[in-house]
């Protein structure tokens, strides 16, 4: 799962293809993806949202696609103390549960879909 960081982002799609924003929105709202545990956002259909993290409204204004991609792949690069998980990391973790060991939280395609969806969140 190699990727190339340029500046403060990852300019190239992890899959080589653009993501699907509609699928990405559904993923952001799925509890198993975990975003909505911490974040809230412009998602009126979802009642239970978190407030441990910034509201995702306007994320597409604040960040480029390249920056959003690196944020999802490895948020710790922006802030080593962050509680936001590194969604594309699969090593160097402690006591990972048997069903999750050796796997990143999200696949490359899921990350691309979410990035495409975040890019549409404009104020």
């Amino acid at each position: 799962m190699p990727y190339k960081i340029v500046g403060d982002g990852i300019p190239q799609s992890l899959t080589g293809a653009p993501g699907d924003a509609a699928r990405g929105r559904a993923l952001v709202l799925a509890r198993t993806t975990t975003c909505i545990l911490c974040h809230s956002g412009p998602f009126p259909e979802t009642r239970f949202q978190g407030d441990l993290a910034p509201d995702l409204s306007g994320a597409g204004n604040r960040w480029s696609v390249s920056q959003l991609r690196l944020r999802l792949v490895d948020a710790a690069r922006f802030n080593p103390e962050t509680i936001m998980p590194s969604y594309y990391r699969n090593d160097g973790l402690v006591r990972v549960g048997r069903n999750f060991a050796g796997k990143p939280i999200l696949s490359a395609a899921e990350i691309e879909d979410i990035v495409a969806s975040l890019a549409t969140l404009r104020d």
Binding site: R31, I36, L37, G50, D51, L52, I83, L93, V94, R95
Partner: peptide
Amino acid sequence: GQLNLACTNCHDDNFDKRLA
């Protein structure tokens, strides 16, 4: 864990906030 969180991240640093 896969989410790479410690007890302290939630229970010392973020009590009174909401998880989903």
